[in-house]
């Protein structure tokens, strides 16, 4: 009773002061912490970019130059990276592996998701659960046996080793994402087509897939990003310098001796992040929807 009374009193001050009060409160409670978060989350990228374009003289002298800014930007590190190392080759390998692994997993998981969600055979729920469980098996416990397998199959040190092993973590993810998408497509559309005498494959190609295009794009860009970022398999299965992927090559080929070429390292990291970052900027909404969709499923 008294609590209710004080509350009623508390909300009685004139509207102008209350508006001001709630606005300053909002600034302190929302905008300031949010700005801190954004600053901290973005700082490493800023630092990466700044370092990549700084001449060495500025890089190692904080007394004379302000470390947060570039006095005289230079492309030396980038030039060295592109013309004195095998960087373009690494980029190409990474791109090839990522695209092939994505296509392979996308095709197989589309078919699997269609079978599980739409063909409704006996035990389809268990197959779905098994694929979900496969997602919980992390690469860190698989890389040693996979390394021996890859060696025995004669795939060691070839891009095929990566193209065939990446789907192990891509397929479970894509399948779950697509099951969710297929669920949202009305079943009546397929029934109509069946009545009209279409075959199952025609239904998949002409009706279900065109309607699931947003889901396919989400799954595709996600797989591409995951394959681009993959590290442990690429580190364990690839030995020769020219077959390495960008993340592995930067860490194993550019880090030489005790003196690190920070400028070149940062330029390499920046350039290696750029393709996914660009990709990401075009498809942000798909990323967000697939991320949240996969979690909700």
């Amino acid at each position: 009773m008294t609590e209710a009374a004080t509350k009623a009193n508390g909300s009685s001050p004139p509207p102008e002061t209350m508006a001001w009060d709630s606005r300053s409160r909002r600034v302190v409670m929302v905008y300031v912490p949010l700005a801190c978060f954004v600053l901290i989350l973005l700082f490493p990228f800023y630092w990466m970019t700044i370092t990549a374009f700084k001449p060495n003289a500025e890089l190692y002298d904080y007394k004379r130059y302000n470390p947060f800014w570039i006095g005289s930007p230079t492309l030396d590190h980038l030039y060295m990276l592109l013309f004195e190392t095998a960087y373009p080759r690494w980029l190409w390998t990474t791109m090839l592996v990522a695209v092939c692994a994505t296509v392979l997993s996308l095709v197989s998981s589309t078919l699997a998701a269609y079978a599980i969600q739409r063909l409704r055979f006996r035990g389809s729920g268990y197959v779905g659960l098994a694929i979900y469980l496969a997602y919980l098996v992390p690469p860190s416990i698989l890389f040693i046996p996979l390394a021996t397998m890859v060696f025995q199959l004669g795939l060691f040190d070839t891009p095929f080793a990566l193209i065939l092993t990446y789907p192990t973590f891509l397929i479970p993810f894509c399948t779950w994402l697509l099951i969710g998408y297929f669920k949202s497509i009305p079943y009546e559309l397929e029934e109509c087509a069946l009545m009209d005498g279409a075959t199952r494959l025609q239904i998949l190609r002409r009706i279900t897939l065109p309607l699931a295009v947003p889901g396919l794009i989400s799954a595709g860009i996600f797989s591409f990003t995951l394959s681009w970022n993959e590290f442990i398999y690429a580190l364990a299965f690839i030995q020769s310098s020219e077959n390495k992927t960008v993340p592995v090559a930067i860490l194993t080929e550019l880090v030489t001796g005790d003196v690190y070429q920070w400028g070149a390292l940062m330029a390499g990291s920046l350039l290696g992040s750029l393709p996914v970052a660009l990709f990401y900027s075009f498809f942000v909404d798909y990323y967000v929807s697939s991320l949240t969709g996969a979690v909700k499923e």
């Binding site: 978060f37 954004v38 989350l41 973005l42 490493p44 990228f45 990466m48 990003t225 681009w228 970022n229 590290f231 960008v246 993340p247 592995v248 930067i250 860490l251 390499g268 990291s269 290696g272 992040s273 996914v276 970052a277 990401y280 942000v284 990323y287 967000v288 991320l291």
Partner: peptide, 12 residues
């Protein structure tokens, strides 16, 4: 905000 998660972990 999602950027740190998109960029390859090794590079960050």
């Amino acid at each position: 905000i999602l950027l740190p998660w998109i960029v390859p972990t090794v590079l960050s």
